[in-house]
């Protein structure tokens, strides 16, 4: 059952990713990426990480993708690749490298001895968002605060970068 669900989701994720890569229109790309993100969020559920599922949906599929779509439409940059590629010689090379990378990372990823996934009580406790929350506000309080600070800086940076009438 799990495996079937996983396979379906995986196919959707890969399809979304490949479609994003090949579609000429940036808006289409963004929408395919959205599909991919959604599939990944399902993956998180399958991996017993419900909290991350929620986060993935809200932050990535919600906020970030909206931002992407917004920028694409604001700039009118749906199609910028009409001109011929000036470094077209790179394309076969890139495909070759991609293939090599895939092989290498598969070898790396599968190289380690895999223990069978745990189950039962331990997994249930692991998937409980409460333990994650407790960790966030105890052991990882400082990184958590720093993340907030980073977000603040990002906000300020964005405002400064796009201020009109003042050269930076």
């Amino acid at each position: 059952m799990d495996l079937i669900l996983f396979l379906i989701t995986a196919v959707i994720a890969i399809t979304g990713a490949v479609a994003m890569l090949v579609s000429r229109n940036a808006v289409h790309s963004a929408l395919f990426l959205l599909l991919n993100f959604a599939a990944i969020s399902v993956m998180y559920l399958l991996l017993s990480a419900p909290f991350l599922f929620a986060i993935q949906l809200t932050v990535y599929a919600g906020a970030i993708m909206v931002l992407f779509l917004f920028v694409v439409m604001l700039l009118g940059a749906e199609k910028v690749e009409d001109a011929p590629d000036r470094i077209a010689w790179q394309q076969p090379l890139a495909l070759l490298l991609g293939l090599a990378l895939l092989v290498v990372s598969v070898v790396v990823g599968l190289g380690g001895a895999t223990t069978p996934p745990p189950a039962g009580e331990a997994l249930a406790q692991f998937s409980d968002p409460r333990s994650l929350g407790a960790l966030l506000f105890t052991d990882y309080l400082l990184p958590f605060e720093v993340t907030g600070f980073i977000l603040l800086i990002a906000v300020v940076g964005v405002v400064v970068l796009n201020q009109r009438g003042r050269k930076i």
Partner: peptide, 16 residues
Amino acid sequence: VPTSYYVLLSAILFTI
């Protein structure tokens, strides 16, 4: 689902 399946998927997505 074994972890290796996820890693495989992850590798494919990363390569894309």
